[in-house]
Every structure is written in structure tokens, then in C-alpha cells.
Design a protein around this nucleic acid. Structure first.
Lengths: 338, 338
DNA sequence: AGCGGTTACTTTTGCGCATAAGTTTATGCT
DNA sequence: AGCATAAACTTATGCGCAAAAGTAACCGCT
């Protein structure tokens, strides 16, 4: 690996001159020298040593992207098309901005924050809730942090959040279902926090707004662990006849549920209607095609990165951005002709 | 960010002593001093500056993971569940080994190699074919490179490859279909190189081995671009009646095709049988559930990383590893009872 | 001639760390 | 006592780069 020093020696000049050419400080160097240096740089295919550069400049040009995997949820967070689509959008933005992406998947916020500090990354994108302990650790990390989909009170206090109008999205969908004559609508989720809680709230408001009384046991709790999911889905299927429809907190669950229902001969949407949330490939490529709440995942990733980059450059940004949702009516919610 | 120098000053000792404690060189420091330093380190939560460390040691503890996106194929490679599952496996291995993952998605091999050199990454994992130009550039990069799923002659000559018995997998599946009475079996793919070619070969061998003559127009070429895929799928559906079955080069295409067929009232497997390849979530969560060739994607990622790590440590490894496939018989290939 | 200012450089310093080389003190051994 | 040696340190150097500070030559102007 050739260094500036070596180049300077070969060309009989100082390292500063070479460095100036590299950084396009044309005012400092004569045109003829510039030419000489540039030609030589090209000839030897000079590549700067990033560690040296970062050490000297105290920056890293790295954006940390931390996915807080919930150990109980999936073996691999990336298995959810929602997450991989998000990462795709983020990666693209990072690259376009001339930064690099350090992908970090862990369930240990502390570990994440430690790594981020170690690497001196210029900014951090957090996906998944931060517990209060994690927030405490992150206090020490002085660079910008942008969260995606956080509803943690502490998190919102400390960080910028790029979110979604989750409540509204679910509200709209449940309203739509009610308008189609559905009354007994269950809600399927694996927990009652953060995003899931918001969506649940939207669901509940829609019920109440239409004079439908929400029964506690309409909240269908799914256990997502690999070894439990089948049993969990079975329980839910067994209760399917109690409901007109099930509002699922994500496409992934909606599709898993539909498979389980179909396997038991329960027809969608004739016997029961299903709605999802996220509008991922999984729902698009299912038959019947999933009626779902669309969010622009890629846009979310891009927005988050743009905000982060602005903060890195010291510009002001809103503290909170909520992206809109739209309904995508396909074939899993029974339509009433009128 | 506290530095070793500062710590040394506070404790009235030399930086070397502090450094020695950090690196566990207990032979060089008295137990009492170790205690003092360790306590202080914990107290101030010392985090080493990675750039300085790497500069001094000439290493980076970064593993580059480069996905060569084919610009024509998907907007986002990560959209394919196969890819995201692979990344998940790789990330886990990298983290367990105490390294970091720099994810890089690009269609420009040159750009990738340049970045890799810049960052002085300790090793590189390449997914997607390398053109000869890319290989030329990579010559300059002196550290280990492991490819995943490469069949490029030049690539195989220069790098380690972790692959799959693609040919055998397809051969087995087509044989199975023939045994179930299928005769006119088409092959669906978007190109005729690398992995796709291998799978195609397996398909062809199986036909020939069973005395079925392969007609050129049994190769169904799909155009994966977003704006063309629907038209492309339509053309294929229009020819569906010509075939007993379609062997698809990937689950993604298989599922897309099934949707297109279903939408046209063509029943699977009654009217036509479909088989996929990869065994991703997409096929598992489709109904009818996709009959497909299974590969352990996560295992592939882990294997690739392990080989790479061995090479980084200077250990010997095989130049080529081929993972096995197994058939997963579900519901999209019509079964003949006998 | 003498001065300010500009151009085109070079020398020097320091980023934070690891480590080779050097120093001092204590310990063991004959 | 004298000397080798080990233990427990410190000092000094360099990784490759960026940038502050320094220098030397020259130009135009009064």
C-alpha cells in the first residue's frame, strides 16, 4: 500500500504538497505540480489509509446501523421482509452520501453502544426499542442518533425519531373493515409495546368510534418463537369462528396466520377476513393477496438517513417525523357490495 | 473520549503500562498496578480509539461483505429473502468472531474493491459474480477473499468459493417431477450464467437421462425489471398449457409465477406443477406451499465466514466447498399415486 | 530601495495507540 | 561483595495523514 510519504519522496516534494493535490486545494499548488502529482497518483493507484485519515481528522465516515434483535422473536431479524427492505433503503442512502454502513444486529443495547463508541462512528441509526439502560449508555455517545419506530418515552426525549402514523393506519383499516360489515374484529400481535401498542390503539379507537365494544379476549397474542409458533397459530385458528376478521400487526403474522387458516380449510375472506400491516413482498405474493396498510419502508430508511446526515453536518432538523400510511385493498377482506 | 495518555497522566504512570494492562500482558505489570489501572479503566469506561489502534497494528477488524447487485434485476437485492437470510447468517458469524461487518451493495466491482482497499478490511466476502475487470482490480487487494456462489472461471481460479451443488439439486427435483409423470417440463430463469446455468444443466441432464428431448423454447426467460415483469409473466402464463410443469430457478420467481398463474385461474398443481429453488420464507408461506430444493442459506453464510476467518489467521482451507441440497416436497408438484 | 502581499512550496506537529528499546530497582546466587 | 538477571517500569519511535506554522522567492507599488 503506497503512502503519501513515499509518493512525496519519489516526486521530490513534500507530503503536504501531495496531500494538497489529493484534497483539491488547487490554490496552494502550481498547475504544473498538480499535473505531476495527479498523474503519479493515478499511476500507482493511490488509496488513502482510512485509519490514518480518520485519526487525523477525528471522524470515521461510518454510519452505524443497529438492529436491536429481540432474541425471543426471530432467529434472524432480517427474515422479516420489512426489515430487509428498510436496510436496503438505508444502505443506498448511506452510500450515496459517501459514507459507509456498519451493520450491527444485537439484542444487547449496551454492546451496541460500546461498539459504536469504539468505532467512532459519525452517527447512529437505531431500529428497535432502546431500553432505559441503553439510553443511559448512549448519553456518553456524543454524536447524532436517529431512531426508527421508537415510542419509548425516554427515547423520544433524547433522540430524533422517524416513525409512522401507526395509529392512524390501523384506525383506517379497521374503519374500512367495519364499513364492509365486519363487527367482531380481533387484533393479533405478540406484544403490547411501542409500535404494536400504537397500532392496537388505532384498532381500538376505530372499534369504539363505531360503537363496537372491545372485549379483552379479542387481543390475540401470538408467540413468535420458532418452537411455539405452530401451537400458537393453532390456538388462534381454533377461535377463528368467533370473529369476522383479524387485524394483524404485521404482514408477516398475517401471512403466517393465513397459511394456518388455509391449512385448516378456513377460507379467506369468505369465512374470515384478514388484514396486515407494512405491505411487504410477503403479502403481495400471497394468494389471496393481502389487504394491508401500506408504508413506504424504503422512504423511511432514506428519510432517517437524510435527517441523520443533516445532524452530522450540524444542520437543524425536526425532532420527530411521522410518515403517512395508505390502505391497500386487495383480496383478504370481504367486500360488501352496496 | 478519554485516551491512554490521559489515563496514564491521571495515574502517574506511563502509557505503556496502561496499554499493557489493557492487553492483559500481566507478566509486565505488578498485580497492584494492574488493579489500579483496571479500576480506573472501568471508572472512566475507557474505549480504545479504533483508528489509532488499527493504524498502529495495520489491521481493521472489519470484514467487508459485498453484494454485487445486478442493476437490472431488483431495485434492491435484499428484497430477495434468500439474500437477507444469507446476510443474517454472515452477520452473526462475523460478530461471534469479534469482527465487524461492512455491508456494501453495488453493481460496480471496481468501486467495491476500491472501498475495500481504502478501508483496509481484513477480509472480503463476495456475493454475486465478479467480472474479469473486478478480478483484475482485486489482484491488488492482498487479503483473503471468499466468494459465495461463483461459477466464474477466473473467479474460481483466484478465490475460494463456497457454493452449492446447484446442478445436483435441480437434477434431483426434475427427476422427481418426471417420476411423478411429468414430461413437458419448462425451465424458468432470467439469465444463463453462473448459478442459473448450473441449475439449468441439472434440469437438462435430468430430462435427457429420462429420454425426454429438451426443446430450446422450453427455456422460459423472465425479465425481472419492475416495469417489465408483469408483461413477462403474462407471456409465460400464456404458454402454460404447453407444459406439465415449470422448474423455476428460484423461489422468488416460482412464487411470482404462481401468483400470475393463480390470477389467471390456472390451478397449481392440478393444471401445472411448479417447483422452486432455495426454500425461502416466500415459498413456505405461500398456499399451495412450494415444492422446492432446499439449501441451508444460513449455513452457507456461516461456512463462508469460517473459511474467511481461517484464511485471515493464515490457516489452510479447502479452495472450494459445495454444500448439499435436499428436496422439500410440498404441494405444488402433482403427485401420482401408485 | 523597501514594504506588504502573494504564490508555492517545506518543516513540524500531533491525532491515539502499540511496541521496541532503555532504565532502575530488587532478588538470587556464588 | 559482586554480578547476572528478572521484575516493573519509562522513554522514544512510528503507523499515515492533515494541517498549522514556517520559509523563500517574487511581484507590484510607492
Amino acid at each position: 500500500m503506497i503512502t503519501i510519504k513515499e509518493i512525496a519522496k519519489q516526486l521530490n516534494m513534500s507530503t503536504t504538497t501531495v496531500s494538497n493535490v489529493i484534497h483539491g486545494k488547487t490554490g496552494e499548488v502550481s498547475p504544473s505540480t498538480i499535473k505531476i502529482v495527479e498523474d503519479y497518483l493515478k499511476k500507482v493507484d493511490y488509496v488513502p489509509n482510512i485509519n490514518a485519515r480518520n485519526l487525523a481528522q477525528n471522524e470515521s465516515k461510518i454510519i452505524g446501523v443497529a438492529l436491536k434483535a429481540r432474541a425471543d422473536k426471530y432467529e434472524n431479524l432480517l427474515m422479516d421482509p420489512f426489515v430487509s427492505e428498510l436496510i436496503g433503503g438505508i444502505e443506498e442512502s448511506i452510500r450515496n452520501a459517501g459514507y459507509f454502513m456498519m451493520l450491527y444486529i444485537s439484542s444487547d443495547t449496551d454492546e451496541i453502544m460500546r461498539h459504536v463508541s469504539t468505532w467512532n462512528v459519525d452517527g447512529l441509526l437505531l431500529f428497535g426499542m432502546l431500553n432505559d439502560d441503553g439510553i443511559r449508555v448512549s448519553e456518553r455517545y456524543k454524536k447524532p442518533i436517529v431512531c426508527i419506530d421508537t415510542y419509548s418515552i425516554e427515547g423520544l426525549k433524547h433522540f430524533i425519531n422517524i416513525g409512522l402514523n401507526d395509529r392512524q393506519g390501523c384506525f383506517d383499516m379497521v374503519n374500512f373493515m367495519i364499513k364492509q360489515g365486519h363487527k367482531k374484529i380481533a387484533f393479533l400481535s405478540d406484544n403490547n409495546n411501542g409500535v404494536d401498542y400504537e397500532r392496537f390503539s388505532g384498532y381500538k379507537y376505530a372499534l369504539e368510534g363505531n360503537g363496537i365494544h372491545f372485549e379483552e379476549d379479542w387481543f390475540l397474542k401470538i408467540r413468535p418463537k420458532k418452537e411455539e409458533i405452530d401451537a400458537s397459530l393453532k390456538e388462534i385458528c381454533d377461535r377463528a369462528s368467533e370473529f369476522d376478521a383479524i387485524m394483524c400487526v404485521s404482514d408477516l403474522y398475517a401471512v403466517q396466520l393465513m397459511c394456518a387458516l388455509t391449512d385448516r380449510g378456513i377460507r379467506i375472506p369468505e369465512d374470515i377476513s384478514i388484514a396486515g400491516f407494512d405491505d411487504t413482498l410477503l403479502g403481495q405474493l400471497h394468494r389471496p393477496a393481502l389487504t394491508t396498510v401500506h408504508q413506504d419502508v424504503k422512504e423511511k430508511g432514506i428519510t432517517a438517513m437524510n435527517v441523520l446526515l443533516k445532524r452530522i453536518r450540524g444542520e437543524k432538523t425536526p425532532k420527530q417525523i411521522q410518515l403517512p400510511t395508505t390502505l391497500v385493498i386487495r383480496d383478504t377482506v370481504k367486500i360488501t357490495q352496496n
